[in-house]
Amino acid sequence: MSAIIKTENLHHVYGAGTPFERMALNNVNIEIERGEFIGLIGHTGSGKSTLIQHLNGLLKPSHGRVLFNGVDIWENIKRVREIRFKVGLVFQYPEHQLFEDTVYKDIAFGPSNMGFTKSEIDERVREAAEFVGITDEQLSKSPFELSGGQKRRAAIAGVIAMRPEVLILDEPTAGLDPAGREEILSRIRGYHEKLNTTVILVTHSMEEIAKNASRIIVMEDAKVRMTGTAKDIFSHADELESMGLAVPQITQVFLRLRNMGLDVDPSVYTIDQAEREIMEVRRKYDA
């Protein structure tokens, strides 16, 4: 299987030649397969925002290549704009970019830029709205009449409506309350499951990553430091902590239990796993 997105020796330097020169990406090589749900984690300034803006051609590599379906996206400069339709990028606080007088028109902005007919646009808008849970009644409202969480979902629909092959979301739950966070994540999960779209979720929350991602990429200091499944990654708790990233609380409990001498798997990262594991230990004893 060939990768849908691949980077080769990707470098990016900001402010080259000025006193503010800074290397934001240093030899980044990643490969993402079609249908994966990737969690991208790293702390502020680690280069993750710079990386995702390369994947849809908003930033141009200082050195190295970005391949989409095996083709260098900068091979033909005129076609870079088309990559943005195939690799949909939802920025942080996307509700700040809403501008139309109805939610419907705002969601339609992307598809109309792609040059679709009215009926095609309509189909896409309604489909995207359904994925994020925006009702028909809300579609005809002004985006500014919606609640915070609804605005965020409408903005995400604006990208989904382009039917991208890859959907990248930069901290889609930032600033929301627990109910709002869960609503967004379950919508994204549903969308991923139904269409098998490749998803890249950028977040600070280890719990969110643990629950959703099939593979995790950890960045630090402009470089990719680790990639692997949640189980692989969370078994390196010490390294993660030295990068200023904490493993989920439940993993910490299990590391502690193991240190106390209990024979449990330390790479547990969800409550369900934890519950099963403890009950297992108990059963072993009872037998």
Partner: peptide, 18 residues
């Protein structure tokens, strides 16, 4: 961790603890 540990060891003398 302490709470889980002590609940397990009260059940049967802690023989499951390595």
């Amino acid at each position: 961790a302490e709470a889980i540990m002590s609940s397990l060891s009260t059940v049967g003398g802690g023989s499951h603890v390595r």
